[in-house]
């Protein structure tokens, strides 16, 4: 049975620990020396190009693929060790693009996986309700839309109240409203102490929603931390958009002339300013001294996508 009870003082302790993990397929190094600590109760994102090794790492964390070298432990137990059954009962997994069994109903699908997990079939109906599929419980999966199938897969992952969720591209096929509901559910689960490891291609989607992110390229973790940590590490410039009337363009230029600004471009009714992070506050102060001439000001921080390309290029 899954153990969901957590004492407050183990919050934040490493729950998933990967040490020196490598995986070779012949001459190909799919995973090339990964060290990773994922804390209890954390929403952790794993991003990378296709073929960067994140799927392999994911499968290794689940114990599906044995490591060529190194080890992965969940709650102190080796994922491929003697206690693998106990470890797997604490884990929920949603594979990417999974096709569930067309000929079963939603409820039957969950009964089947509940039996495999050693969970009471009575958990199936509440799990369906949680993902908003109670109305379709007795319909065959064949009749489900793509989004409904994805939610059914997620309900499957929730069986047995797992401590850890591994979700591989979980929002594929969901509409924007469903995506929002999905992340709301993840936050709810986090407040219940569930640790989630998630991959996504849509970086904009996860950048504001995860606690920490690891960027993977060519089998290695290039960087790991909060989105802000990563921005600091890669040191990308910021963009200011300053809305002023055309007559005041020169005043803006003059105000910034003594500051370490990389570029100033004028477009229509705004001036775009690119500068280093260190200059950010000085630029804001200089613009504030222009009194009422600045009508609006927006600062665009480098997005996760910018950061990602900063690391992977």
């Amino acid at each position: 049975m899954a153990n969901t009870s957590r004492t407050p003082n183990d919050a934040g302790a490493p729950l998933i620990v990967a040490q020196g993990v490598r995986k070779h397929y012949g001459a190909i190094q799919a995973v090339d020396g990964v060290d990773l600590h994922i804390r209890s109760g954390e929403l952790f994102g794993l991003i990378g190009h296709n073929g960067a090794g994140k799927s392999t790492l994911f499968k290794m964390m689940l114990g599906l693929v044995p490591a060529t070298a190194g080890e992965i432990r969940i709650g102190g137990a080796l994922v491929t060790g003697r206690d693998f059954r106990a470890v797997r009962r604490t884990v929920g997994y949603l594979p990417e693009n999974v096709v569930l069994y067309d000929n079963l109903t939603g409820l039957e699908t969950l009964w089947f996986f509940a039996r495999l997990k050693g969970v009471s079939p009575a958990e199936a109906a509440p799990a369906l309700e949680r993902v908003g599929l109670a109305h379709a419980a007795r319909r065959r999966v064949r009749e489900y839309s793509k989004g409904m199938r994805q939610r059914l897969g997620f309900a499957q992952a929730l069986l047995g109240k797992p401590r850890i969720l591994f979700l591989d591209e979980p929002t594929t096929g969901l509409d924007p409203e469903a995506i929002r509901g999905f992340y709301a559910m993840l936050r709810q689960l986090r407040s219940e102490g569930v640790t989630t490891v998630i991959t996504s291609h849509i970086l904009a989607e996860i950048q504001e929603r995860v606690d920490r992110i690891a960027i993977m390229t060519a089998g290695k973790i290039q960087a790991c931390g909060t989105v802000q940590d990563l921005r600091d590490q890669v040191d990308l410039p910021l963009w200011f958009s300053v809305r002023v009337s055309e007559a005041d363009f020169e005043a803006v230029r003059a105000a910034l002339s003594h500051l370490p600004v990389d570029a100033i471009e004028a477009h229509d009714d705004q001036v775009r300013v690119r500068c280093r992070r260190e200059a950010k506050m000085a630029v804001i102060e200089a613009l504030a001294r222009l009194d009422g001439r600045v009508r609006d000001l927006t600062v665009r921080e480098p997005s996760l996508e910018d950061v990602f390309f900063g690391f992977s290029d």
Binding site: K59, L62, G63, L64, F84, R85, A86, R88, R89, V91, Y93, L94, P95, E96, N97, V98, V99, L100, Y101, F113, L116, K117, G118, G153, Q156, F166
Partner: peptide, 13 residues
């Protein structure tokens, strides 16, 4: 091929 093998193998089996 349907992607459910990994799911089955992630069970305690």
């Amino acid at each position: 091929e349907r992607g459910s093998l990994d799911l089955l193998l992630s069970m305690p089996i």
